[in-house]
Design a protein around this nucleic acid. Structure first.
Length: 824
DNA sequence: ATTCGCAAAGTTTTT
DNA sequence: CTTTGCGAAT
């Protein structure tokens, strides 16, 4: 036993409910824990309690979703039970380790590679290219998304049946088998596979399942509301014979539905595990009364939830600020100025602040402003270190050394730095590899025997193989040494050093940083498979995680990464229609509720002060656009808040402002109508004048070229067309929309096979590009009526820029390909 | 084969 | 506005 402290010490200062949760030992347990209710405390104390009750540390397994959460838990447990060796890790890491051990049972070798998103994308693109799929209509990412979705539902290539009417799904069904086959032949897995393979492993190998169930007698799962099907099955498989499973979570904080998280997992927990002990932690120890009431008021608008009462004994606190800024620049500037001023006055330190946004792309103006004000800040999950080109290049050498079948890695480095091996040569090698059923590296070894390869190319490839084998000689020992060999022998370092450009010098510096990371890794990890462990770590860990956790900096992050954290002062920016709720969540009640939960999570991170803001104008794709405030703002209790309007900045004419969407104005709840009204106004008084051009309204939208997408964005935002514009009245009600027709047509061609699919274009023949002129009214089957505001190019390259009435923004069309036609 | 330049397209969220 | 991809020139 690691300690001699009496058990009572562990329970000191816990509430009754917390104590119940902590002292539960055998049998299933569900801890419903509201935000700030001391959940992590309960979990760590419970682990310590189990240990002191004599349960061996190796029998305990704690699973989390993020590395951050795992690290936090480890650190806190270490204080309670120093020296205990409890396995606390993310689901993905746990599965990786499981699969290393039982690799052969799922068709892998134990030195398999974990492809990151970028690697997976490359692989998928290759498959699409080789099978001649036309990706004009659907982006590879969408197809990848469909495959990912299948894996999250535990559907193998054979089982996968795409949703009807989904082009991405249809193509995915075609390429999923090949994609998966190539992963396996490269001895690689993607992120989804980690969970997928593990779930299948446990499902199909009863003896393995039984052994693991027996070993992990006590399992704890954090954020259970975010588990998806494979995760759910893994947990179930490991807690069947010994159902000592404790899950914690909060349905109101479920924000990973898009990744297949299933709320039912937590809502039905009591059905899955009879005789469950349910503990509710509803008292909040984190936030002020006002902040908590704002959060509570908001989340009450969700229908699909278990109501719970949040309360706190904390101070009343200051009102929550709700600010309308004229522009995003002013938003960023003023926030930076406020932070700087609080710091200067000695009221706060930089680390007291956090700024949250819905999407990463929104961080830039904030970064600029903070820099200007001399405020130190740190981005979480931005351009990740391991995603940089030079790091990926160097890492690819390591990956290939570790797993010679890693084709993506080989393709990446065979000509990096340049060694006279071109696209054509690689293509020939790939073909040979596929024909003979070997890896790229094996094909490269046989380069001399491939007839279609020129002598010069064969020699270059042979030289590369020799070089690579020389590196392979040093595959053992500390990672730092291996890395050193890679850098010198590959010529990569020399190549960069020879360059004059500042960019390349920066890359060199990054590589130095990687060397440092490798050294640190070597110091902390001893053991034979250092390289493999290092690569796995790099694949599953975010660079900034833990690296400078203690740094005194303002933290900038997405709301998703903010989950589980807390800060004295929180700013949430860009609460605008189309951003939060995100555009792609509109027209789907369930998704919209998830967006609301997202805001709930953001709000409940704040301890003392909270500011929510939106900007009336925000730059999108380079141009300023008027926005519409998020309708979630209407759902907040005004009596808890202090409203600051755009007019304070001398912008009285901006519209709409928050004061314009007072509660009680009934119809203002209908944000869609608000958006429409704005659009119509602008079209009416802007028609014919240049003003129309720059004043697109709120909602970003799909690009014209991608208009045959998933069924999820079939939504229609058409509205009665104002008489003032003098054109046609309402768009006809749609029975079968043109888009649906085209989706059906495309699907029909797909079913005839990949080869044919390549030739399938849109169903309707375009009219001659010359038929269009400036100012002409045109009709698009999807977007309806619009006006040509610009023309460029000629012949088949002739393009038109069109301002639609019913769709936001302007869209560009290649006339020869588009279904656009004159309006009459 | 490589590099450079321009045009087009693109912005959810994470492991 | 930025990044990525493709085509032309060296």
């Amino acid at each position: 036993m690691p300690t001699t402290l009496p058990i009572d010490d562990l329970l000191l200062g816990l509430t009754d409910a917390q104590r119940d949760a902590v002292t539960h030992v055998d049998g299933p347990q569900l801890v419903l824990a509201g935000p700030g209710s001391g959940k992590t405390r309960v979990v760590t104390h419970r682990i310590a309690y189990l240990l002191r009750r004599g349960i061996p540390d190796r029998a305990i397994l704690a699973l989390t979703f993020t590395n951050k959460a795992a690290d936090e838990m480890k650190a806190r447990l270490d204080r309670l039970a120093p020296g205990a060796n409890v396995w606390i890790s993310t689901f993905h890491r746990f599965c990786a380790r499981l699969l290393r051990r039982y690799a052969s049972l799922v068709g892998l070798a134990e030195n398999f590679t974990i492809y990151d998103t970028d690697d997976s994308r490359r692989l998928l693109r290759n498959v699409l290219r080789d099978q001649n799929y036309d990706t004009d209509q659907v982006t590879p990412d969408r197809i990848g998304g469909a495959i990912s979705g299948a894996k999250n539902r535990l559907l193998s290539p054979e089982d996968f049946a795409p949703a009807a009417r989904s082009v991405a799904g249809a193509i995915a069904a075609k390429v999923y088998p090949e994609y998966q086959a190539r992963l396996l032949s490269a001895n690689a897995v993607d992120f989804d596979d980690l969970l997928f393979h593990a779930a299948v492993l446990l499902r199909d190998n009863p003896e393995v399942r039984r052994a693991l169930d027996e070993r992990y007698r006590y399992i704890l799962v954090d954020e259970y509301q975010d588990t998806n099907l494979p995760q759910y099955l893994i947990v179930r498989a490991l807690s069947n014979d010994y159902p000592n499973l404790s899950v914690t979570g909060d349905p109101d904080q479920s924000i990973y539905g898009w990744r297949g998280a299933n709320l039912k997992n937590i809502l039905d927990f009591e059905k899955d595990y009879p005789d469950v002990q349910v503990v509710r932690l509803e008292r909040n120890y984190r936030s002020t009364k006002r902040i908590l009431r704002v959060a509570d008021h908001l989340i009450a608008h969700n229908v699909r939830r278990k109501a719970k009462s949040l309360h706190t004994e904390n101070d009343e606190g200051r009102p929550v600020r709700l600010v309308a800024y004229p522009t995003q620049q002013e938003e960023a500037q003023e926030i930076a100025a406020r932070i700087a001023s609080d710091m200067r006055a000695g009221r706060r330190r930089a680390r007291d602040f956090a700024i949250f946004y819905r999407i990463n792309a929104l961080s830039r103006s904030l970064e600029d402003a903070l820099r200007e004000h001399g405020v130190p800040f740190q981005l979480v999950n931005s351009v990740e270190f391991y995603q940089r080109m030079e790091i990926k290049d160097v890492m690819a050498y390591l990956h290939l050394v570790n797993n010679p079948r890693n084709d993506v890695a080989l393709a990446r480095i065979i000509n990096t730095p340049p060694r006279g091996i071109g696209k054509k040569t690689i293509e020939t090698l790939a073909e040979h590899a596929r024909r003979t059923g070997t890896s790229l590296l094996a094909a490269a070894r046989e380069a001399g025997m491939i007839e279609s390869l020129s002598k010069r190319a064969a020699v270059a490839v042979a030289k590369f193989v020799t070089l690579f084998d020389a590196i392979g000689e040093h595959a053992h020992g500390p990672v730092e040494e291996i890395l050193g060999h890679v850098l010198t022998q590959s010529g990569y370092e020399e190549h960069l050093a020879a360059s004059e450009s500042e960019e390349d010098q920066e890359r060199l510096a990054n590589i130095q940083e990687l060397l440092t990371a490798a050294r640190q890794f070597d110091e902390q990890h001893s053991g034979d498979n250092a390289l493999e462990a290092f690569l796995e770590q790099a694949s599953l860990v975010n660079d900034t995680d833990g690296l400078e956790a203690e740094a005194d900096r303002v933290m900038l992050m997405t709301i998703h990464s903010a989950k589980g954290l807390e800060f004295p002062v929180v700013y949430v920016v860009a609460l605008e229609h189309g951003i939060l709720p995100h555009e792609r969540s509109l027209n789907d009640a369930e998704k919209e509720e998830e967006e609301r939960r997202l805001l709930f999570v953001a709000i409940t991170r704040a301890r003392e002060e909270l500011q929510l803001s939106h900007a009336v104008y925000r730059a999108f794709r380079g141009q300023q656009r008027m926005t519409v405030p998020s309708h979630f703002l209407l759902e907040l209790p005004r009596e808890e808040m202090e409203l600051v309007e755009a007019s304070r900045w001398g912008a009285a004419s901006y519209r709409p402002t928050i004061s314009g969407i007072r509660r009680g104005d009934g119809d203002w709840h209908d944000v869609e109508r608000v958006v429409r009204d704005i659009r119509r106004d602008e079209f009416e008084d802007g028609a014919g004048s240049g003003r129309l051009a720059g004043r697109a309204s709120a909602t970003p939208s799909a690009t014209p070229s991608a208009d045959v997408g998933d069924d999820e964005d079939l939504g229609d935002t058409s509205f009665p067309f104002g008489a003032a514009a003098g054109v046609e009245p309402n768009r006809p009600e749609r029975e079968t929309s043109p888009r649906e027709a085209r989706v059906a047509a495309t699907l029909a061609t797909l079913t005839t096979g990949a080869e044919l699919a390549a030739g399938s274009q849109a169903a309707e023949a375009p009219v001659s590009p010359d038929a269009f002129s400036l100012g002409m009214l045109v009709r698009h089957p999807e977007y309806g009526l619009g006006k040509v505001v610009a023309l460029s190019g000629s012949g088949i390259k002739r393009m038109a820029t069109v301002q639609f009435v019913t769709a936001p923004g302007q869209k560009k069309f290649v006339l020869a390909k588009s279904p656009l036609r004159p309006a009459r």
